[in-house]
Design a protein around this nucleic acid. Structure first.
Length: 879
RNA sequence: GAGACUGUAGCUCAGUUGGUUUAGAGCAUUACCUUGACAGGGUAGGGGUCGGGGGUUCGAAUCCCUCCAGUCUCACCA
């Protein structure tokens, strides 16, 4: 074998193995007789580039899928992207504009051509980036929400819901994004407190200009569309307004005054202007009092003809102008600063404009029930559990889902119109037949009917993802095998947008859940707990991180701070730790490989014991890790492996069996060390696939398979007595080191040790290999059993036994006494607390026998230590 | 406004139905050691009255009440 490099060279190794795995087809899955383990990627936007959230998400999914593969499941991880209507259309429009092309100059078909071009060019970038992280997705299955198979599902779902009466077209007040010029669902509107102003404006009475009423509004520009002023019926200040009309300033329209207890007398002036076209509450008032609805805005947020004034100017510009004009006319009474909630578009950040319009809706209460129950009963299990609360609350108050979007990029709504008639159909021809029927006009031609111009909300395709990726409605073969999938891994921020709707869709069409478990990851934040964002510039470059720390290092970093649900405070340091960990493993391999083997040597007892121990401990860790992962506690699982590999394997085990400098080693020890390191590779592989494959390859036999497709060792019982004994050995060795440390004795200066022998000690040292092991690790010349009162040198206590490290140095009696007395004090306190417990009759009679036993043992041990300490103190004082 | 969650070492967090040596881990920190596996490594240490206050219990970080601080979700009154 070629000389191993000083450090683990991640970049070379990663591309090498990824290509190898892919070319061997290890990531690909086909239904077979094995049990499936399937995961669907939460499809990232085609517009996206890899960011920290993806990295976390992908790493977790890859851990689960690689683990399933190693456990012998037929593991299938389906990747893909979603078409992201709003975001993608915005990017395409921008790109066209840069080329001097206006969207409005293009036909729908031409625009879509450009859009597809854009998608082909950029849509795959993020998937390629996932590969850099080591994602073992089945790339042959890569899906896109707008490809043919997926689209077929979307249309079918729409038509089916419509036919079942669970989808309708209705006139409603919607959230309008004037920048993207489309409607948004409630979930796409982000409400935040912002600084605004409350304008007090005077409306004079129509029949008596000397009298007036002053209203308060945050949006003076909407007065152009006012059709009433409202006050509370019991408000004594406004009784004079009964039966009166007031004049809308500037436009000079006479409107009526209405009296409704919706108005809060406390707020503002207690008088409210009513603009039914531009406020949801005003709209309700309008309906109640049959008010005129004047829509004063164009789709881009500029004032329309209906506004009469400021026509064509933007709403925020108009706000300024109108304030000035009101002031000029003496109608602006007061302006006060006011903090209030403003809704902005999640995608464009434009202030959302409430707007009345005709849109398509899904009747959510009609389909929510089974999905709510499924989560309540843990048929679909949430990790962490408390996400159930959030889910329950939203599902219990669910509102209809507005699914039309006034865009071109997406699935065009399969609805055709003729006059007032609507046809929802798979094809234009079918729609024509329906409309002929509905209108009673048999001569209706294709040219007479018109398809809806709008497309569907992107989530309307995403919610079908668990079914559509397997072509589930048109071919049962894969569907029956892979569905329901095993687990969904996603951020909690899209629980409503996506997760809840997917569960609903699962029950609506398949009668069962889309996945058994949902693992909600936290949001990645920076050290200061700020959300990672482009504008803050605090989001590390994902690819740079990988090149700096290696994919394994970054995976380690992401995982080691990823409690489910909580925030994840990201710090480069964690990746550095991961990189160092890779390096540590690499060097363990180097060490073992560097040993010269002498086949004539027998295995020393100590090495045999060490080998047994590290093997038993392996199975301890294996079963522990297994339990953690079942609960999706990946961070814990990884920490277990980290401390086993770094602590037990490298720091203890390798030191135990290490031959003296430049001495050869026996074949059995190398054999065990290699075998355990190989098993470590399998165990760690899901977390850190590259380093483990590399090390595995260096150790594996010619005819052995690659690490990625090998099998986990069967979990088995392990020898707890042996593990306990070695743990005692470790305690003894640590105490020896501590004693040296505290007394400035060189760590490797070879000294004799005597032990005041007792039953426990005899038993421990009767195990073959214990004595030489203690000698080797403690740098001891000899280990001698002595009787009570014998032994000299630095004394220390482990368990309830006394040890003496003999040294040529003069023992500093005074210092030694101080230490011993401190220790004695602690032990006395300890024993007192235990004794207090045990002398409490309530405790002894109520606590379980096991607990009482434990306390008695604590007491005994403590008392024994007190005795040893007291003796030692006396001895020193007398000397 | 309604609800949820969190508060444990300098930092990030574990602590499973109240009971395993008078509270654990990782990182950071301190001292010492180390030119032969290790972008360092090793060894050992210091550091917390578990947000405050009550209560239930033989026993509370863990259960209940209350206060304080923070985070988030949903809904929103101009």
């Amino acid at each position: 074998m070629a000389e191993l490099s000083k450090h683990f060279e991640a970049d070379k190794v990663e591309s090498k193995w990824y290509q190898h795995w892919e070319s061997k087809g290890y990531f690909h899955s086909e239904p077979d007789e094995r049990e499936p383990y399937s995961i669907l990627i939460p499809p990232p936007n085609v517009t996206g580039v890899l960011h920290m959230g993806h990295m976390l998400n992908i790493t977790i999914q890859d851990v689960l899928i690689r683990r399933a593969r190693l456990n012998g499941y037929n593991a299938c991880w389906v990747p893909g992207t979603d078409h992201a209507s709003i975001a993608t259309e915005a990017k395409v429009v921008k790109r066209l504009r840069e080329q001097g092309i206006k969207k409005s100059d293009l036909t729908r078909e031409k625009f879509l051509e450009y859009a597809w071009e854009w998608k082909e060019e950029y849509g795959g970038i993020i998937l390629d980036q996932l590969k850099k992280l080591g994602a073992s997705c089945d790339w042959e299955r890569t899906a896109f929400t707008m490809d043919e198979v997926r689209s077929d599902h979307v249309y079918k779902a729409f038509i089916d819901l419509y036919n079942k009466g669970k989808l309708y077209r209705g006139l409603r007040m919607v959230n309008w994004d004037p920048q993207a010029q489309t409607v948004l669902s409630n979930e796409e509107v982000i409400h935040k407190e912002e600084n605004g102003r409350l304008y007090h404006i005077k409306y004079v009475l129509a029949d008596d200009p000397s009298q007036s009423v002053t209203i308060a509004t945050t949006r003076p520009e909407t007065l152009l569309g006012d059709t009433a002023v409202a006050v509370h019926p019991d408000d004594p200040r406004y009784t004079y307004l009964k039966g009166k009309q007031v004049i809308v300033p500037l436009v000079n329209r006479a409107i009526k005054v209405i009296f409704d207890d919706y108005v809060e007398t406390e707020f503002g002036t207690g008088a409210l202007k009513v603009t039914p076209a531009h406020d949801i509450n005003d709209y309700e008032l309008g309906k109640k009092y049959d008010l005129e609805v004047i829509d004063i805005f164009n789709d881009d947020g500029s004032v329309s003809e209906a506004g009469q004034l400021y026509i064509g100017k933007d709403r925020f510009e108009v706000r300024k102008l109108i304030v000035k004009d009101l002031e000029a006319q003496g109608l602006l009474i007061e302006v006060e600063d006011y903090r209030h909630n403003v809704g902005r578009s999640e995608r464009t950040d434009a202030v959302v404009e409430p707007k009345l319009s005709l849109q398509w809706y899904v009747d959510m209460p009609a389909i929510a029930k089974p999905a709510l129950e499924a989560v309540e009963t843990d048929e679909v299990e949430f990790f962490p559990k408390n996400m159930k609360n959030t889910y329950r609350h939203w599902m219990g108050n669910i509102r209809d889902w507005c699914i039309s979007r006034q865009l071109w990029w997406g699935h065009r709504i399969p609805a055709w119109y003729f006059e007032d008639h609507v046809a929802v159909a798979e094809s234009e021809q079918e729609a024509l037949d329906i409309l002929k029927n509905k209108s009673g006009n048999a001569n209706l031609a294709l040219a007479d009917i018109k398809q809806d111009e709008d497309v569907l909300d992107t989530w309307f395709s995403s919610w079908l993802w668990p079914m559509s990726v397997f072509n589930g409605w048109f071919d049962k073969k894969e569907m029956d095998y892979y569905y329901p999938t095993t687990v969904l891994v996603t951020g909690w921020d899209i629980i409503f947008l996506w997760v809840a709707r997917m569960i609903m869709a699962g029950y609506e069409w398949e009668g069962t859940y889309p996945y058994k478990d949902v693992y909600f990851t936290g949001m990645v934040r920076d050290k200061k707990r700020r959300k990672m964002s482009k504008s803050l510039g605090n989001s590390p470059d994902a690819l740079k991180l990988i090149s700096d720390y290696g994919a394994d290092g970054v995976r380690f970093g992401m995982l080691s701070c990823s409690p489910a649900g909580g925030d994840l405070l990201f710090d480069d340091k964690l990746c550095e730790q991961g990189r160092n960990f890779s390096n540590k493993i690499w060097n363990a391999l180097k060490l073992i490989k560097s040993w010269e083997v002498d086949t004539t040597l027998d295995q020393p007892e100590a090495n045999a014991l060490a080998g047994q121990w590290i093997e038993e401990k392996y199975f301890d860790v294996l079963s522990n890790t297994d339990a953690r992962i079942k609960e999706y506690r990946l961070s814990d699982a990884l920490m277990q492996l980290y401390s086993y590999i770094w602590g037990d394997f490298c720091s203890w085990y390798l030191e135990m069996i290490k031959p003296d400098y430049q001495k050869p080693v026996d074949p059995a020890s190398v054999q065990t060390a290699s075998a355990v390191l190989k098993k470590i590779c399998i165990m760690l592989h899901p977390f850190m696939p590259f380093i483990t494959e590399e090390v595995w390859q260096a150790l594996k036999a010619e005819d052995e398979v690659d690490c990625i497709v090998s099998r986990y060792p069967e979990s088995r019982a392990f020898d707890t007595a042996l593990i306990g004994d070695i743990s005692q050995v470790q305690d003894i060795v640590s105490s020896i080191r501590d004693t040296r440390n505290q007394n400035q004795i060189k760590p490797k200066e070879v000294l004799p040790l005597s032990i005041q022998s007792d039953e426990a000690i005899k038993q421990l040292f009767s195990r073959s290999g214990v004595e030489p092991l203690v000698r080797k690790l403690g740098f001891l010349e000899s280990v001698t059993m002595v009787g009570e009162g014998e032994g000299s040198g630095y004394a220390f206590i482990v368990g309830k036994s006394k040890y003496y490290l003999e040294s040529n140095e003069e023992v500093n009696v005074e210092e030694e006494l101080i230490k011993l007395k401190e220790e004695l004090e602690y032990q006395i306190g300890f024993v007192a607390s235990v004794d207090k417990k045990l002398s409490n009759q309530g405790f002894v009679s109520n606590a379980p026998a096991k607990v009482v036993e434990m306390e008695k043992k604590k007491l005994e041990d403590g008392q024994a230590r007190i005795q040893l300490l007291t003796e030692q103190i006396q001895r020193l004082e007398n000397s």
